[in-house]
Simulated scan of single mutants.
Amino acid sequence: MHAELPGHRLDLDTRTLAHFMPMHLLLDSDGRALSFGPTLARVLQDDAIPGALFEDLFEVRSPGGAVTVQEVLARGGNRFRLLPRNGVRAGLRGLGMRLGDEGKILLNLSFGNDLIAAVRELALTDADFAATDLAMELLYLAEANSAVTRELRGLNLRLEGARMAAEEEAMTDPLTGLRNRRAVDLVLERMCAARASFGLLQMDLDFFKAVNDTLGHAAGDFVLGAVGQILREQLRAEDCAARIGGDEFLVIVVGRSDPKTLQGIAERIIARICQPMEFEGQPCQVSASIGIVRSTDLADPQAAQLLATADRALYSAKHAGRGRAVLLVSRGE
């Protein structure tokens, strides 16, 4: 429960933040660093420069698909896992929130499972942690065990971290940062089993092959990355967007089954994708065709049937002239 005296506001300067939160990062509304906690500055080393962008400092490991700090807060429920881009072996986890009306963003980080490795690599001491942090006491207890026990514990921690990272990577398309086919199939099966209300959008890029053939695969990869960013911007955190292969995408719009709503979402996505893109001074002109189906059209929705209907809807959109969205009703056999 949060409470404060009427008419009182707590203002913390960077010196106070550094004292109580030595692993903090204060950002402006654009995601540029305003101040670093002293311990975090040791982790980031030469990268701890005021004005540095969040995405230049960290690779986001969770939530999947997030790159900027704004996306982290929007998709992760203020919880996240990061990896410094400077090569320091310190996986970080933390909490974040926006401060008041100024739009500043405060992140408070910790080492999580990588505490022992971080302490050894960076030669951290009690002075590098908040006085209330039990990290060093826990470390002393670990060091009191035998060498074999310490190594086994360290190995287990590293394996667990590797397992979590591998699971996240296995569900993510590396080119766009969206979910992949495996992930969206799992979500679709779960939504169908729960008889949940959702819209399913199957999208294909028009004229994408021409971009690849005339400008090369690097230009094609650029277009795919831009489309991934557009989908993240147009959808909510609870929705699921995936690249399922080549220039094909699948979107699950959770809790939305109204035809006008789904049509509007699809048309906004199409309008954004149709806007001119430029790669190394060369225009990359593509459009998008979308087929739409609704789970509520079936008393017993099945993933295979919805996908088949969405594919037919997509074919209808392309046959009608491309660059448009078509909704078909999925009916039981």
Rank of each mutant, 00 (worst) to 15 (best):
V69W: 00
F36T: 01
T68D: 06
G177F: 00
G154E: 10
T309I: 05
L109D: 01
L122H: 12
G323P: 06
P63E: 08
G281F: 05
Q202K: 14
L314Q: 03
I273D: 12
Q305V: 13
R98I: 08
A266K: 10
N212M: 01
R232D: 09
A210G: 07
F58E: 00
V187W: 12
N78C: 15
I269R: 12
G323L: 01
R42P: 04
L99N: 04
V251E: 03
H8V: 13
L298T: 04
M97E: 14
P63G: 08
D185T: 11
I273G: 09
P283R: 05
A41W: 02
R42N: 04
A165L: 14
G228E: 02
G94V: 10
Y315V: 01
V253P: 01
G177K: 04
M136L: 13
G177V: 07
A196R: 15
Q45E: 15
A317K: 06
L40T: 00
A117M: 08
D185I: 00
S330W: 03
L44Y: 01
M136G: 09
L27H: 05
M21C: 12
L152R: 14
D311M: 04
D11P: 02
L314Y: 05
Q275M: 12
N145D: 14
S35Q: 00
L157H: 14
R331T: 13
E333H: 11
L175I: 02
L99P: 05
A142N: 15
E267T: 12
A226P: 04
A41T: 02
I105F: 06
L95F: 15
D173R: 01
L186R: 14
S29P: 02
L95A: 15
C284Q: 09
Q285P: 02
L188M: 13
L307V: 07
G255Y: 06
D300I: 09
L215S: 11
R75H: 11
F54S: 01
R190C: 00
D13H: 00
K209Y: 01
D126Y: 14
S289R: 03
R322I: 01
V253Q: 10
G103R: 00
L25S: 07
R9H: 13
D47M: 14
A193H: 13
Q275Y: 05
L138V: 12
F20Q: 11
A130S: 15
R158D: 11
L306G: 10
I230S: 10
I292E: 03
L141Y: 13
A165Q: 15
A117T: 15
L124G: 08
L307E: 11
Q285G: 08
V227R: 10
